[in-house]
Nucleic acid binder design. Structure first.
Length: 566
RNA sequence: CGGGGCGUAGCGCAGUUGGCAGCGCGCUUGGUUCGGGACCAAGAGGUCGGCAGUUCAAGUCUGCCCGCCCCGACCA
C-alpha cells in the first residue's frame, strides 16, 4: 500500500477528550473514526489489524474443534422472552419494531439464536459435543461507552457455544476453549490471567474472565501468588482479619455528637473501625435494604446484587432512609421493623460492637449478633482487600489491574430447558443439552494490545496482527535513484509475500520517521541517498533502537528472515 | 440515570465589558530545504451544535433542546 493513497491521515493532535492511551493512538494513527458515542468506523489500517486479530482467533477456534457459522444481528424478541433473559438485559438490549409492529432486537449476544438452531437440528447424543462459533457484530446500549474501543455499543465479538451430553464433557470443552484463549492472547503478545468471575446477565454457574494485565486496565483482579487463586474483584473472596472475641456485655447508649462516619465514631470512642458495625442503605428494585457490615470492611455491590437477586441496585439517599423511620448516620439494626436487613459474615467475627442507636448523636456499645438484632440474609458481601488472606491458602492477597478481553461461562441447562434443546441419550431418554459459551471482544482485544504495549512514540504491533509487516520509508524521493530503488524494494518485498506500507509521500525525514513510530509496524526499511551510497538500505525493528544497513542485493529475503525470527 | 465538563475552519484551540470571527497544524499553488514533526510567499476553507428570546447589535446574555467527553452503577 502506498501511504500517499491511504485513507486515514496521521494526526499530530487529538482532542483532550480522548485520554485513554489506546484511544488517542488509534485516532492519531488513523485507525478509527468516531461516528457517535460508542460507535466507530474502522479506517483501512485499523480494519486490517482487526481482521488479523480475527484470523488468529479463527485459527485457534478451528483448532479447538469449532465450526464457524453466521447468525443474524436482527433477532425476534420472542426468543428473548422464551429464554427469560429479556429482563436481565433490560435497557442494554437495543430494540426496534418492523413494519408490522413486530418487536425485534439487535443481538447483544447469540445464545438464544444458537440454542434455537441446535434445538431443531440436534436430536441425538451422537451429534454431541458440538462447538459452534461466529465472529459477528454485537449491539449493547451501554449506559456509558468509554475509552475509545475499550467499551462501545457496537462491537465485534467472537462468540462460541458448546453443547454437551454431560458435565464431564462440558468441563473438558470448557478447558479446551480456555487453553485456546490463552494461546490467542499470547500470540498477540499479551500477558493474561484467567480469573474467577461473576456471570452477570449471561447467567450460568461457573465463569472465568481473561484479564490482560497492565496498569492501564480498568478492572481489578485479586490474586494470590502462593496458590494461583485469582478472581475478579466482583467475585473475589478473602479471609478477613478476625474481630476480637469477648463475653457479650450489656448494651449501653453513648452520646456521639455529630459523629457519623465510622472513622469519626471509632476515633471518638478510642476504638478501631473493626470494633464497629457499618450500616449502608441501598435501593434494590425500588425497595430499601439495610446492609450491615463490620466497620473495617466495604460492601461488594456485585455480591450484594446477587444475594438480593435484584435487577437494579443503587445507594439510597438520606430522605429514603428517613422515610423508613431511620436516622442517617446513626441507623441501628437493633429494634427496627419493616426494613430488610442483610449482613456480611464479618459481623459475626468479633463482639461488643459499636452501632448506631437510631437516635441523633447517639450510638450503642456492646451490640452483638444475634442477641440484639436479626438479619434476613447473611452472606459474604464484602470486598476483598490487599493483604487479606487468600481464601484457599491464607497467603496475603495482592491486587492487579487488567482489561477483560475474554469471558467464558458454564451455562448448564437453564437455556436449553427454556429453549427446548434436548437430545436422546443411549437409553432413549430425552435430556436437556448442557451448554457453555465463550466470548472474546475483538475490538477491545485490539485496543488492549495497543493499551498495554505502546511507548511514548506510538503503537508497537506484534507481528501477528500488524496491519503491515514493513514500513518502507523513502527519503528524498525527488532523486531518481532513490525513487527507482524504493520502487524496486517495494516490489521485491511484496514478491517475498510481505505486506508493505510504502511511505512515498513528499515529506521530510522527521515526519516519516515519526509516523513510522506512531503506526508501529514491526520493521522499518529506509532507502535514502545516504544508504544508496553504500548500496544498502537501513533496517530497524520498531521495538529496538538500533539500526543496521543491509545490502540491497538480497534485501527482501533478509528482511523476511528478520521478521520470522523477531 | 446521578455528578462534573465541553460544543467556534478538516484537526487542536483562543475569542475581554455584547460592536468587522481569529491563531497553530493540516490542505492548495510556487520556490528553497532534507536522517527525527524544515522555511518563505500566495491562497482556499465558517449555519460559532440547534431552536426560541432579550437587544440598534449576540460566538458572547436568557430559556429549552441536541450532541460529545470524564467519574460512578453495567460489560466482550
Amino acid at each position: 500500500m502506498r501511504f500517499s493513497q491511504l485513507l486515514g491521515k496521521t494526526l499530530r493532535q487529538v482532542s483532550a477528550e480522548a485520554d485513554t492511551p489506546s484511544h488517542q493512538l488509534m485516532l492519531r494513527a488513523g485507525l478509527i473514526y468516531q461516528v457517535a458515542a460508542g460507535i466507530y468506523s474502522y479506517l483501512p489500517t485499523g480494519w486490517r489489524a482487526l481482521r488479523k486479530v480475527e484470523s488468529v482467533i479463527r485459527e485457534e477456534m478451528d483448532r479447538a474443534g469449532g465450526q464457524e457459522l453466521m447468525m443474524p444481528v436482527l433477532q425476534p424478541c420472542e426468543l428473548w422472552d422464551q429464554s427469560g433473559r429479556r429482563r436481565p438485559f433490560g435497557q442494554t438490549l437495543f430494540t426496534l419494531k418492523d413494519r408490522r409492529e413486530r418487536v425485534l432486537c439487535l443481538g447483544p449476544t447469540h445464545e438464544e439464536v444458537v440454542t434455537d438452531i441446535v434445538a431443531h437440528q440436534v436430536k441425538s447424543y451422537r451429534d454431541l459435543p458440538l462447538y459452534l462459533y461466529q465472529i459477528q457484530v454485537k449491539f449493547r446500549d451501554e449506559p456509558r461507552p468509554r475509552g475509545g474501543l475499550l467499551r462501545v455499543r457496537e462491537f465485534h465479538m467472537k462468540d462460541m457455544y458448546s453443547f454437551h451430553t454431560d458435565e464431564a464433557s462440558l468441563d473438558e470443552g470448557y478447558w479446551t476453549v480456555a487453553r485456546a484463549y490463552e494461546r490467542i492472547f499470547s500470540r498477540l503478545g499479551l500477558s493474561t490471567l484467567m480469573v474467577e468471575a461473576d456471570s452477570g446477565a449471561i447467567g450460568g454457574k461457573a465463569s472465568h474472565e481473561f484479564m490482560a494485565l497492565g496498569e492501564a486496565g480498568e478492572d481489578e483482579v485479586v490474586r494470590c501468588e502462593q496458590c494461583n487463586y485469582a478472581a475478579n474483584m466482583e467475585k473475589a473472596e478473602s479471609r478477613k482479619t478476625p474481630g476480637e472475641k469477648g463475653e457479650p456485655l450489656p448494651v449501653e447508649e453513648v452520646s456521639t455528637p455529630g459523629k457519623k462516619s465510622i472513622d469519626e465514631v471509632a476515633g471518638f470512642l478510642g476504638l478501631t473501625p473493626r470494633h464497629t458495625l457499618k450500616a449502608i442503605f441501598y435501593i434494590a428494585d425500588g425497595k430499601l435494604v439495610f446492609v450491615l457490615i463490620r466497620g473495617d470492611q466495604e460492601v461488594n455491590e456485585v455480591k450484594l446484587k446477587n444475594l438480593l437477586r435484584c435487577a437494579e441496585l443503587r445507594l439510597s439517599g438520606d430522605e429514603e432512609i428517613r422515610a423508613a423511620g431511620l436516622v442517617p448516620g446513626f441507623a441501628s439494626p437493633a429494634g427496627i421493623k419493616g426494613v430488610t436487613i442483610v449482613a456480611d459474615h464479618s459481623i459475626t467475627s468479633g463482639a461488643n460492637f459499636v452501632a448506631g442507636a437510631n437516635k441523633p448523636d447517639t450510638h450503642l456499645k456492646n451490640v452483638n449478633y444475634p442477641r440484639d438484632f436479626q438479619v434476613e440474609k447473611m452472606a459474604d458481601i464484602a470486598r476483598a482487600r490487599p493483604g487479606e488472606g487468600c481464601p484457599k491458602c491464607g497467603h496475603p492477597l495482592t491486587i492487579a489491574r487488567g482489561i477483560e478481553v475474554g469471558h467464558i461461562f458454564k451455562l448448564g441447562t437453564f437455556l436449553s430447558e427454556k429453549m427446548g434443546a434436548s437430545f436422546l441419550d443411549k437409553a432413549g431418554a430425552s435430556r436437556p443439552i448442557i451448554m457453555g459459551c465463550y466470548g472474546i471482544g475483538v475490538g477491545r482485544l485490539l485496543a488492549a494490545v495497543i493499551e498495554l504495549t505502546h511507548d511514548d512514540r506510538g503503537i508497537i504491533w506484534p507481528a501477528s496482527i500488524a496491519p503491515y509487516q514493513v514500513y518502507l520509508c523513502a527519503l528524498m524521493m525527488e532523486k531518481a535513484d532513490v525513487l527507482a530503488t524504493a520502487e524496486k524494494v517495494y516490489n521485491e518485498l511484496q514478491a517475498e509475500g510481505l505486506e508493505v506500507l510504502f511511505d512515498d509521500r513528499q515529506e521530510s525525514p522527521g515526519v516519516k520517521f515519526n509516523d513510522a513510530d506512531l503506526l508501529g509496524m514491526p520493521l522499518r526499511v529506509t532507502v535514502s541517498p545516504r544508504t544508496l551510497e553504500k548500496g544498502s538500505a537501513e533496517v530497524k525493528l520498531r521495538q529496538q533502537k538500533e539500526t543496521r544497513l543491509l545490502p540491497l542485493d538480497g534485501l527482501a529475503s533478509q528482511v523476511k528472515q528478520i521478521l520470522t525470527v523477531a
